[in-house]
Design a protein around this nucleic acid. Structure first.
Length: 639
RNA sequence: GCCGGCGUAGCUCAGUGGUAGAGCAGCGCACUCGUAAUGCGCAGGUCCGGGGUUCGAAUCCCCGCGCCGGCUCCA
């Protein structure tokens, strides 16, 4: 029999008879941990035979692709368990996701917690049986017949979209599921199983389609990994800004005020104000000019802009009074446009950068509201740059540099750039000037490439008026949200008939760049709370120092210290409660105050403070001026 | 908005048909204390709201509101 050469990632080569199963090669090379193989870059079942020479790599659970296969097979295992327990169940799709897997299933009623426990138990049984998972390929029409017999309507719909003459299935015991694969060699590989939650999920994500039941789960090769994962989930909950927001007295919601309408408590308002001053100062340095505009506008304004057509479902309905139809402002751009339009502009004036901490109201569906991350009343760090076409690249690049500067200052490290492009197939949403789209999108790519920015392209993510670059972050609960955004717009200036007088003495439409750096104050602060786990750096901390008198007789001196600190521009408070020093320290630590200043007889006599740092503990006594200087330097460095 | 879960004191939670409880927080008193919880006492509740079943409802049923996890959508 012919021999073939197999190349491994470490550069080694071995020869095997043609047709040797990959599983044997894995065993032969001491890779008992292999879950799946990558053959010439393609993922393949271990059961598959190797027919030609190839580069072969074995993937275990540590490999992201290996893990996906593991969770994909886990989804099948869950479906198998569900099918055994509920034979009438109709299966839809069951993919692996970033942290586990889910399967969308219709059993004609919702799953309850007891169902989950039962399914989980059955999964363990099936895994213990260590059933072989095998791939079967059958002709498409046979697959259709099979699913017709089984009454699997969702699988039949999926089949409609598969043009191939043969489709692959995977079988374990009596359970058969249409699937591209690859999969684990057997169910026994799945050791630690946890079903996490159920929820409704529309078939194909479309709310006009039937609602299926989605079960989320996660599995691991080692029970300890599952424990670690569950522990990590608990830790994430501790960081959740909704929890910290309450504990640290930053913000609150009240039923009487309304859903999604946050109340900023003094401490949260302090953080917000610091951040607002910071960004406004920075923008002023960069040539932005700040404005104020009203929260209400005639709906006509949004009819001109096109928002009424495209964004109406997110707007509060008009209030009619005195022959005007007023809506709550969902966007600041039309107002800024009107400010531009108020005067005539020469090409020499451009770019004009109009900025505002603009309060907006958007109707978000009740089910989507989430703490400060998604609210109905929000303040956007908004600005609109009006420029000449040849200034786009420079202005766009300037905005990106500003984003990078701000993220460095705020110590934001985990984020991703998404370049959101229009989808030419979706005609009804986007404006129809394809040349303009092509130009705008080419320009953006150019700027990003020049800056050497790594980004992901998202087809269909653009606004109706133009493409955009979004900065995506992850919340403590794992949701992905947009923070900063930069958007290119050729459309609105035309709709509003904006112009500038060019060198040629003729009128030309300017180009608009919409941008938000800090995002909304709500979302950014939600993110920062989670980013810092509530422990704000000194420059942002609502309370920078807490003065802790040892005994009642030191309260007067503590008061003097606090006055001097405040005069020096620090945010400081005195804990004059009738408590012991350890207790006061404990409270200050729990409120995550960066500096604690202990004052007793020694300090009062010498005019000093005993400094304790939130991280690092006791720093010893220090002259008050020295402490002020220390904090000032930290604030300046945003350390 | 849709599906599921949850809603008891400011917070965390116990209480599954017989008249509501703990810890922490709050207030008072004593101790006057040196780097993550001093002790004692007091007060605090339309048990989310409304309706129903029952001799009797925090507990069972119905409707509504809010929150949480998803679906969908955006900063």
């Amino acid at each position: 029999m012919a021999e073939i050469e197999v190349r491994f990632p470490d550069g080694k080569r071995r020869r095997y008879p043609q047709g040797t199963p990959l599983a044997r090669i894995a065993a032969d090379t001491g890779r008992a941990d292999a879950l799946v193989a990558r053959v010439d870059g393609r993922l393949v079942d271990l059961a598959a035979a190797l027919d030609a020479e190839a580069a072969v790599e074995f993937l275990n659970f540590e490999d992201p692709d290996g893990r996906m296969v593991y969770w994909h097979s886990s989804a099948h295992l869950m479906a198998q368990a569900v099918k055994q327990l509920f034979p009438q169940a109709q299966l839809a799709i069951g993919p692996p996701i970033e942290d586990g897997f889910y399967y969308d299933i219709d059993i004609g009623r919702p799953f309850g917690p007891e169902d989950l426990a039962q399914i989980e138990e059955r999964m363990r049984d099936l895994a213990r049986q260590d059933q072989t998972i095998e791939r079967v390929e059958i002709p498409r029409d046979e697959a259709i017949r099979l699913y017709q017999e089984m009454g699997e309507r969702f699988k039949l719909e999926l089949l409609e979209d598969i043009p191939d003459a043969r489709v692959s299935f995977y079988r374990q015991d009596g359970f058969l599921d249409m699937c591209r694969g690859p999969h684990l060699p057997s169910t026994g590989r799945i050791k630690a199983i946890k079903l996490l939650s159920t929820s409704g999920a529309y078939w194909r994500g479309d709310e006009h389609q039937p609602m299926l039941q989605r079960i989320y789960g996660v599995t691991f090769p080692e029970p300890a990994q599952l424990d670690a994962y569950l522990h990590q989930l608990e830790e994430a909950k501790r960081r959740d800004h909704r929890r910290l927001g309450r504990e640290l007295e930053l913000f609150a919601f009240a039923e009487e005020v309304g859903q999604g309408l946050p109340l900023w408590l003094p401490r949260g308002a302090s953080v917000r104000m610091t951040l607002e001053r910071y960004i406004v100062d920075l923008e002023t340095q960069l040539g932005y000019r700040h404005v104020y505009t009203p929260d209400l506008a005639d709906v006509e304004l949004y009819k001109i802009s096109g928002h009424w057509e495209h964004f109406r479902e997110n707007m509060y309905p008009p209030m009619e009074i005195d022959h005007e139809e007023l809506v709550l402002k969902p966007m600041n751009c039309p107002h800024h446009i009107m400010i531009y339009k108020h005067q005539q502009h020469s090409y020499r004036d451009l770019p004009i950068r109009i900025a505002e901490l603009g309060r907006m109201y958007r109707y978000e569906r009740s089910g989507t509201l989430a703490g400060l991350h998604r609210v109905r009343s929000m303040t956007l760090n908004d600005a609109h740059i009006f420029c000449r076409p040849e200034q786009i690249e420079e202005e766009f690049a300037g905005v990106i540099r500003l984003i990078q500067r701000v993220y460095r200052d705020l110590r934001i490290e985990a984020y991703r750039y998404d370049l959101a492009l229009h989808d030419p197939a979706s005609k009804e949403y986007y404006h129809h000037d394809e040349d303009l789209w092509a130009m705008a999108e080419r320009l953006l790519r150019q700027v990003l490439d020049d800056l050497g920015l790594a980004y992901t392209s998202v087809l269909g993510g653009a606004n109706f008026y133009g493409p955009k670059l979004d900065v995506q972050i992850r919340t403590a609960t794992g949701a992905v949200e947009s923070l900063s955004t930069v958007q290119l717009d050729f459309l609105l200036p035309r709709r509003f008939g904006l112009e500038y007088i060019g060198e040629d003495g003729k009128a030309h439409p300017p180009v608009m760049i919409h941008r938000a750096i800090i995002s909304t104050m709500e979302r950014m602060i939600a993110f920062l709370i989670e980013n810092y786990a509530g422990a704000f750096p000194v420059w942002l901390a609502p309370e920078q120092a807490r003065i802790l008198p040892i005994a009642d007789r030191h309260n007067a001196y503590a008061g003097q210290v606090s006055v001097r600190l405040r005069e020096a521009g620090l945010r400081a408070e005195v804990d004059a409660s009738n408590e012991r020093i350890s207790y006061k320290i404990r409270n200050a630590q729990m409120m995550k105050v960066p500096y604690m200043l202990v004052v007793g007889d020694r300090e009062a006599e010498s005019g000093q403070v005993a400094v304790r740092r939130r991280e690092g503990g006791d720093l010893g006594p220090m002259a008050l001026d020295a402490f002020v200087e220390r904090v000032r330097q930290e604030v300046a460095a945003k350390a």
